[in-house]
């Protein structure tokens, strides 16, 4: 049964990649948005990092990972559209009649978000290196581990948001708020040490905090895998909790609508 379930999920994931390939605009947005904001904020980050004692910093060490993390949250909106448009296209019921369980549909259709995020991080980090002099300094596997933990967290959040929201518009609105909240509190717009005291207190409750802390260890402190163990553990653990919660809620199979989704 598990093999059949994985096979169906894989078939859906492969199909979703084809759909994404037909319209790469989500990827363009995920790459262009952080690059634009990096351009504006890098000089300010440089000053802050120099004050923090990183005399050789050029600002990209904070700006590139921080803003990539923040804009990566928008993947939840894109994932929501990918799921809700199944209702707009009337294919959701067809998938169910084809024997695909709700959890398999959601997992199969959100798994390609991992690929989308991998391409986003690779392109922003690569272009950040070429345009803004961004360097990792630390261990690439450590950066990869932080990325993977964050990506899993975002996919799990997408599943949970879909389980909770009744319409695509609800999901997009909620995601936009969470993006600014998690990004701002996590230290994407200004380092956490520069936040007001109340914000510093709640910052560790956001995934952005742990992801940016992990990336900062690698980019500014030249850290390896052991140094990012805590951020990776926190992100992975909370991703498991979110995914389990989503799976439990999806069993209720609430009625969904895709009011903002164009069918044909």
């Amino acid at each position: 049964m598990i093999t059949a379930s994985l096979t169906r999920g894989a078939a859906l994931a492969r199909h979703e990649v084809r759909i994404l390939a037909q319209d790469p605009s989500p990827l363009v947005a995920l790459v262009v948005m952080p690059l634009l904001v990096i351009t504006f904020l890098r000089p300010a980050f440089r000053s802050i990092l120099v004050q923090e004692g990183y005399a050789a910093a050029n600002g990209s060490e904070q700006a590139v990972p921080g803003l990539t993390v923040m804009f990566s949250f928008f993947v939840v909106s894109f994932g929501g559209l990918m799921l809700f448009r199944e209702h707009g296209w009337h294919t959701w019921a067809r998938l169910q009649v084809a024997g695909v369980r709700t959890v398999e549909i959601v997992a199969g259709k959100t798994a390609p978000l991992l690929l989308l995020l991998a391409v986003q991080f690779a392109l922003v980090f690569g272009l950040g290196s070429a345009l803004f002099g961004f360097r990792l300094h630390g261990s690439p596997p450590a950066a990869a581990a932080v990325f993977l933990a964050l990506a899993c967290w975002l996919v799990a959040l997408t599943m949970l948001m879909f389980a909770v929201c009744r319409t695509d518009q609800q999901m997009i609105a909620l995601t936009n708020v969470l993006t600014m909240l998690f990004g701002g509190l996590g230290g994407a717009l200004v380092p956490v040490d520069s936040l007001p005291s109340w914000a510093r207190a709640v910052s560790p409750a956001t995934p952005g905090y742990w992801a940016i802390r992990g990336f900062r260890s690698v980019t500014l402190d030249g850290a390896g895998l052991s140094a990012v163990a805590t951020p990776v553990a926190v992100l992975t653990g909370s991703a498991v909790v979110l995914a389990a919660l989503a799976a439990a809620l999806l069993h209720r199979t609430p009625t969904k609508s895709a009011k903002g989704t164009r069918g044909y």
């Binding site: 759909i19 037909q22 319209d23 296209w89 009337h90 294919t91 019921a93």
Partner: peptide, 10 residues
């Protein structure tokens, strides 16, 4: 079903 259910972009 009565409503057309196909994937338009593939």
């Amino acid at each position: 079903p009565q409503d057309l259910g196909i994937y338009p972009s593939v």
